[in-house]
């Protein structure tokens, strides 16, 4: 696969095995700044593993991942954690909000991890919550809000550090169509206006339709559909 110039993140020939199963078997990926790329494929195809590798959550067995010129695959855990804290944002399907913290505290958490003062962090967090239309939930705990609202809080959290790259793993997986669409609309809009790129793992075509481009993962191998069309 050609690595287009000016890519934010380029991965080549990724291999990753969990025990005897090859989760990734030569997958490739690239994304430009500000681009929304959907990663599709049947369940068990390795799309979540691809996302975990790209985000530096797990290291691939072989292959290279370059983010902004830095090689992720050989980076130590502390550096990767730092990168995740400062450059990346994350949205997962569910179970990602700390149940004990209020929503605004949850959104402020990544900033706090970077050492921002509590006041400052919560002010910024509230700003993002407003953009995602959940600012009225600031003082509530995750257990007291609906699934769609919780997901929007999670999106606000993924954006709060102004990351250049957001990883979203089935962000609408637990939501109905209406709520899912709303979350996708808000996520892509907010990401576009902040010029953040989004890696969107999903198996739903209507969610993938919010992307600029998609790649399909099948049996640990990726296909870039841009090239095919």
């Amino acid at each position: 696969m050609n690595a287009p110039g000016g890519s934010l993140l380029v991965a080549e020939d990724l291999k990753k095995a969990y025990g005897p199963t090859m989760a990734l078997d030569g997958a490739a990926f690239s994304i430009h700044p500000g681009e929304v790329v959907a990663v599709m494929g049947p369940s068990g195809s390795g799309k979540s593993t691809l996302l975990h590798c790209l985000a530096g959550i797990v290291t691939p067995d072989s292959g290279s991942i370059r983010y902004d010129g830095q090689e992720l695959a050989t980076m130590n855990d502390a550096r990767r954690s730092l990168l995740r804290r400062t450059e990346f944002g994350f949205v997962f399907q569910f179970g990602q909000l700390v149940p004990e913290l209020t929503c605004v505290e949850n959104v402020a958490l990544p900033l706090r991890l970077n050492g921002t003062s509590r006041k400052q962090a919560e002010r910024t967090a509230l700003g993002w919550m407003e953009r995602l239309e959940v600012d009225d939930l600031a003082k509530k705990r995750p257990g007291e809000v609906s699934g769609g609202q919780g997901q929007r809080v999670a999106v606000a959290r993924s954006l709060v550090t102004s990351p250049r790259l957001i990883f979203a793993d089935e962000p609408t997986g637990a939501l109905d169509s209406l709520n899912g669409e709303r979350v996708m609309e808000l996520l892509t809009e907010a990401a576009r206006s902040a010029n953040a790129a989004v890696v969107l793992v999903t198996h739903e075509a209507r969610v993938a339709a919010y992307s600029d481009r998609e790649i399909v993962v099948r049996d640990g191998k990726s296909r870039d559909m841009e090239r095919v069309v």
Binding site: E185, E214, V216, M225
Partner: peptide
């Protein structure tokens, strides 16, 4: 044969993207 399906699905998604954009 998978190629045929993938090509077709890319075409479908392209249409869906256009529709989604129009919808927005």
């Amino acid at each position: 044969a998978a190629d045929i399906l993938d090509t077709q699905r890319a075409e479908h998604l392209r249409s869906m993207r256009i529709l989604t954009d129009r919808k927005r």
